[in-house]
Amino acid sequence: MIAALNGAFDDISKAMRLHRVWIALAHEDIGDQHRRTTLGPLWMLVNYFAFVGTFAFVFVTKDASNPSYIAYVAIGMLVWFYLTETITMSVSLFQREASFIQGTTLPLFVYVMRLTMQCIIRAGYSLAGCVLILLLSGYGINTNWLLSLLGLLLLILATPAFVVVFAFLGAFFPDSEFIVGNLMRVGMFFTPVFWVYSGQEGVQEYAYHWNPFTYFLEGVREPITAGIFPGHSLAVTGYFCLGLWAIALLLLGLYRKRIVFLI
């Protein structure tokens, strides 16, 4: 156990010393994904606007009197897209990096940070879109936005742990790539991304209270749409983060040398 944790911390500290590598590689990745396109990474912004626009257009009729719905969807989509993208890309991370893993001795955490970095850069474009939507729908910048940053910070802190857990899952159980992919697609409907929970019973009640993603979303959203300090959500996400990091460290410590034989 102690040896495992030492191994994990060793891997992580080596990766941190190589931070220039994963920062450079993440930038290359973003560039590669949009090579030879005219809009380049701005496509991420277009994609985000298209989704928020569709949902706002389809569902706003009922809540037409309530402009905060657009803000609700805009922030919900921002966080949800970030989580989905991170998790689905994590599952196939080690397979995608096979040639580097089999050809260099970089610590595994370098690949984890590379993906984390890549997801954060991509989310940056959506974030810019989100801020624009908030401003246009009449939310001036105020101190509540700072509380939202707390939620975003927790989300970013949790990201490497998410990546490690799902990357190992994908390496040890190749089927999980398809299972996780489908679950995340369905998951959008079981998470309060675009529907508002106001005490309904049945499925929605469970989907709201027992879904960890709810709290990641609410931690960022509540300060802006409801103007409250999301104490409960932040506490739940905080504990969730700690648990996730504990699992991630154990996996990294115990199994990092096995990955190269599995891919």
Binding site: L18, R20, V21, A24, L25, E28, G31, D32, R35, S99, F100, Q102, G103, T104, L106
Partner: peptide
């Protein structure tokens, strides 16, 4: 291995060195 096909030779030298 360790070379990115899309990047220029110069950029690849930088990446290789960083690694």
């Amino acid at each position: 291995i360790g070379f990115r096909p899309e990047a220029t030779g110069r950029r690849n030298i930088v990446l290789r060195g960083l690694i």
